[in-house]
Write a protein that binds this DNA or RNA. Structure first.
Lengths: 143, 143
DNA sequence: CTTCAATACTTACCCAGGTAAATAAACACC
DNA sequence: GGTGTTTATTTACCTGGGTAAGTATTGAAG
């Protein structure tokens, strides 16, 4: 096999990410959700109620992005936002409707992930994850 | 090492992609360019003048996305669009300004890519690329 | 206390990705 | 040569990512 160029790796990474998000959005359309909204729901389902800051820090995104998405999710009835003791912060929690629907959505997403990775052995999965983590950390340290 | 879950891989993939694009945008800011604009310029620099359809098919994106980006790039003086013999299509070419500046930008992007991948051996790079390609193709075949 | 810095969130404004539908030209076919 | 279909591009409208600046509350220091 020919040696791969750096740019080919970066290009493949971005194309693949765009592709998987696009496909996951198709999968989630039946549930009236988008990939980034599901990420927030998954987070809340795993950790329980969180502040907005906890969410965007965990998801490695920015505050305004999360604000906007949460506004939409509040409108569509997935989450509610209430004030904390600290009046600056908002505590986000899942609505009963969300809690009811999550198991179904989760199954759908899990089967999507499994399908995407069906050609991979567990060893290859570990390998891929290790390489992705290494790329991320090596980017972060060399600023 | 513990076995990795499918969702962790998908999550890592998307986070990493977002991170690299964000960093590349910082790098390109000095040149008044964005990552997706550079992708188009790189494409034109490599293959010569192309139609819009050729561009979006090559970049694996959609027609409206490319239209919008090209409008911006025309305004900022990187490309020009002229009508082909087939009056439906538009042929995109780089402006003299673009051709003059490309070598400098290319150096900047190359050093960025190299920095991002500096912790990887050539073997690891090949491995990572192979795994990304496999993930992409396995997603495409199992629709 | 009062003042000033830090923190949480929001607003306004970019670019980018997508879908659905409209337009216009080319093509095929009878 | 009209009729209908494909093809190239555009328009309108979503979601999502980002930065910069504004608001409000908290907290710390004098």
């Amino acid at each position: 096999m020919k040696n791969v160029e750096n740019r080919d790796i970066m290009h493949a990474l971005n194309q693949l990410s765009r592709y998987t998000v696009k496909e996951l959005n198709v999968q989630l359309k039946d549930h009236d959700l988008y990939a980034s909204q599901w990420a927030i729901i998954y987070c809340l389902d795993t950790f329980g109620a969180m502040t907005q800051t906890e969410i965007w820090k965990y998801l490695n995104t920015e505050a305004p992005t999360v604000t906007r998405t949460l506004v939409r999710m509040e409108k569509s009835g997935w989450i509610s936002r209430k004030q904390g003791q600290d009046k600056r912060e908002r505590i986000i929690e899942l609505t009963p409707m969300a809690i009811e629907r999550i198991p179904t959505v989760k199954k759908s997403v899990e089967s999507f992930d499994e399908e995407m990775l069906s050609a991979f052995s567990q060893q290859e999965k570990n390998q891929l994850y290790t390489l992705l983590a290494k790329l991320k950390s090596s980017g972060e340290t060399s600023e």
